[in-house]
């Protein structure tokens, strides 16, 4: 797939991004290989206007059914722990009550595309996971051991999501996720 470019008059983004979708087949065992097989690249974009054009054609997260995920990652980073951009990284996880996913996802994506996190190249991508009881937002960064960066990301996340103060946020390294096989 060729690298996307902003069209005439469009507003370029600091980074190009790719949108991925995955859905777990009911009853199938979770594993890294089935996760990889289920991951579908939907589109790439390079400008604000291209993002909105794609977004208007995507089903909103709250309207997805079953065990589904949207992933928006910088172009060239596959949304997998094993990718070289992710293998020393981790993610902030925010668990959402049902009904909040679409609004929170839009807030998170706009903050990421607009470079509101102010952590340079650290952000890898964002994921919204639709599950039965709750939905889960995650923001992945490159360096799990960099506590200054991860704290800054947490503070910005809290601000842009505008969630109740008692919302629980957890940081998890991809290494730990791999060990406990928890996050497919």
């Amino acid at each position: 797939r060729p690298t996307p470019k902003p069209g005439p008059g469009e507003h370029p983004l600091q980074f190009n991004y790719a949108v991925w979708f995955s859905r777990k087949a009911p009853g199938k065992q979770s594993s890294a290989s089935s996760y990889n097989q289920n991951l579908k690249l939907i589109t790439t974009f390079a400008s604000v206007e291209q993002w909105w054009n794609h977004y208007s054609h995507l089903v909103r997260p709250s309207d997805l059914t079953g065990h589904s995920d949207y992933h928006i990652f910088k172009e060239g980073i596959r949304p997998m722990w094993e990718d070289s951009a992710n293998n020393k990284g981790g993610k902030w996880i925010v668990r959402l009550k049902k009904g909040l996913a679409s609004r929170c996802w839009e807030n998170l994506v706009l903050a990421m595309l607009g470079e509101q996190f102010m952590v340079g190249e650290e952000i890898c991508g964002a994921v919204i996971s639709i599950r039965y009881q709750e939905d889960i937002l995650a923001l992945w960064n490159r360096t799990a051991s960099d506590s200054v960066t991860t704290s800054r990301i947490r503070d910005t996340l809290k601000r842009v999501l505008n969630l109740p103060p008692n919302t629980i946020m957890e940081y998890k390294t991809h290494n730990d996720s791999m060990k406990d096989n928890s996050s497919f």
Binding site: P12, L13, G114
Partner: peptide, 21 residues
């Protein structure tokens, strides 16, 4: 570091631009 920053309000304005189909 990053050079291209956009505020949320600006991104939302672009949603209604003629360039956004």
């Amino acid at each position: 570091g990053s050079k291209i920053f956009y505020e949320r309000s600006f991104l939302l304005q672009c949603r209604n631009s003629p360039l956004t189909k």
